[in-house]
Amino acid sequence: MTGSIMDLISRASIKVTNGRVMARRKLHRLPRVTVVIPCYNYGRYLRQCVASVTQNQPGIDVEVIIVDDKSTDDSLEVALSIQAADDRVRVIRHEQNKGHIATYNDGLDAATGEFVLLLSADDLATPGALTRAAELLTAEPSVGLVYGNAIHFSGDLPASRSEGKEWIVWQGVDWLRDRCRSGYNIAASPEVVMRTSVLRSTGGYRPDLPHAGDFEMWLRTSAVADIGYLVGVDQAYYRQHAVNMNKKDFNAGTARGQFVDLKQRWQCFEVVFAGVGRNLKDRSSLLQIARRTLASQALERVNYAYARGFKGFPSTEFEALATEIWGDVWFSKRGRALARRKKLGMISLPIHPLWAASAIAWRLEDVVRRWRCRRIGI
């Protein structure tokens, strides 16, 4: 093993999760990759988005499908002008606004490529991203989806990494087990390329999970296929701006947003293990791990609110969700800790002196999780 994952922590993490490290292999044929670009009022970003997948993506046959969801700006006009100039691009127009889930599914249903990427019109693929993903997917037929790192940006595009020389491949159930232990999504969408046949076999995005549809899709895929990661490369640019869907529709960064996110992440596990994952040999143990993880995270939010003196935090809702997910959560370490804190009451200090250590540990755990995700994708 050489290059970006030589450090001992990365080696250990890969081993613990049963990942297989292998050398990157070049394409030996010309695969077709469909890029679905859902668009609602993002006309100002659309040309740059399309150019990111039609340029600097060598060795592949690209198909671009723009789905305009009855935009009220100039998105449709821009899309049609792009289509007129490039026969690789076609436009699907909605006669009425259907919302993002239906827009995603309409585009995915129309895809003809062997592999498919869903790329929001305000995001971008990095140079060579489709090529790198296709290399792994053609070399490893068991892999249902492949992803790399996404760069979050605003303003000018930062430089991206493109010279990674290694892949990691997990058996689907091993990758799924790590998600049960973590409880978090590790990929947004623009950095993920799927095998279209796997998508067809498991279905499109679920309308009942508008906030966590991507996460459920990845979990569902891992129940039926292996998962690949491109080490040391950046696969997408994720644009941060005032009207991001997560900020505008799902209150990202607020207590309400945290609650919605936590609840829908739990619902993702529920529907996957009740659906395509119901026949997995380890289904019962995996579901129990997920229960413990998400219920503990709900109480940890309340514990942290007590530690910081956040009197306006909706503790009751988080506690009820934790109990709904796992009835025995109050006998866990976090449940017992919260019971002690509730007896003592919440003190409005920058951080409660008796609980500073646990609050710091919780934050440190989050930092380590994000670091490991960027290094080895899990």
Rank of each mutant, 00 (worst) to 15 (best):
248 K>Q: 06
154 S>I: 01
258 Q>W: 12
237 Y>H: 10
184 Y>D: 14
193 V>T: 10
218 W>R: 08
176 L>Y: 07
212 A>P: 01
241 H>A: 05
156 D>A: 13
154 S>W: 00
265 R>F: 04
169 V>L: 10
180 C>H: 01
256 R>N: 03
159 A>K: 14
266 W>I: 05
229 Y>W: 15
201 S>R: 14
242 A>R: 02
211 H>T: 14
201 S>V: 03
214 D>K: 05
260 V>S: 00
262 L>S: 09
223 A>R: 04
194 M>F: 12
227 I>L: 14
194 M>C: 11
194 M>E: 14
176 L>V: 10
150 A>W: 09
205 Y>H: 06
184 Y>F: 10
222 S>Q: 01
188 A>R: 09
177 R>F: 01
233 V>A: 02
165 K>V: 15
239 R>L: 13
247 K>V: 15
172 G>H: 04
187 A>T: 06
177 R>A: 04
253 G>P: 05
185 N>C: 08
172 G>N: 03
206 R>M: 02
242 A>F: 04
162 S>P: 05
233 V>T: 15
188 A>H: 11
264 Q>Y: 03
221 T>N: 14
266 W>A: 05
224 V>C: 08
147 Y>Q: 15
245 M>P: 08
181 R>P: 04
245 M>H: 10
201 S>F: 03
168 I>Y: 04
228 G>Y: 00
